[in-house]
């Protein structure tokens, strides 16, 4: 299979690799970069477990080719916060019990990240609608909504 050279900035670091043109971005992130915090849950862009930020927009990395992301900037869950300084969303999910098995969580957090970029002060309805591209089978979503509200509050306060 012919290879194509791609260069991406991922979580602030630059990477260049030769990849198969059909290589999915999620497999590139997981298998070649070793960032396994991005998960695969459905392969059809429904569940959102693979959500990452690409050039400032939340995308489903299970249906994006790596070559489509060439030259782009990617943010994954590993780049969002640090142990000693969690992102307010990570903190919110922890404080509000916004996760159980944790599998949907990285994607859910990144979808919420985009939501808060667009709506810093969302209503509950806006949060629920904004997260419709991400499925969680454990929590019933209520604590996730609480977590996003917690983060929104905290981010507004720190501005």
């Amino acid at each position: 299979m012919p290879q194509k050279r791609v260069s991406l900035r991922i979580n602030g670091r630059d990477y260049t690799h030769e990849v198969e043109p059909r290589l999915l971005l999620v497999h590139y992130l997981r298998d070649m970069i070793g960032l396994t915090g991005t998960h695969i849950g459905c392969e059809t862009s429904i569940c959102g477990a693979c959500t990452v930020m690409l050039n400032g927009e939340a995308i489903k990395s299970c249906t994006v080719l790596t070559v489509q992301a060439d030259g782009g900037e990617v943010l994954t869950i590993e780049g969002l916060g640090r142990a000693e300084e969690l992102h307010p969303l990570q903190e919110g999910f922890w404080e509000c019990h916004g996760l159980q098995c944790g599998y949907c969580t990285p994607g859910m957090i990144l979808a919420a990240y985009q939501l808060l970029l667009r709506h810093p002060d969302p209503t509950e309805e806006e949060i629920r609608r904004g997260l419709d591209g991400n499925l969680c089978r454990c929590t019933g979503y209520q604590h996730i909504v609480d977590a996003v509200q917690y983060a929104a509050r905290k981010m507004r306060e720190s501005k």
Binding site: R30, T36, G37, E78, L80, G81, W94, H97, L99
Partner: peptide, 21 residues
């Protein structure tokens, strides 16, 4: 009590089967 499992999960550092290399 908030969960002790969460720090690894909210940072994407947990290991599900497919994450084990």
């Amino acid at each position: 009590v908030k969960r002790r499992e969460d720090p690894r999960l909210i940072r994407g550092l947990a290991h599900y089967v497919d994450d084990i290399q």
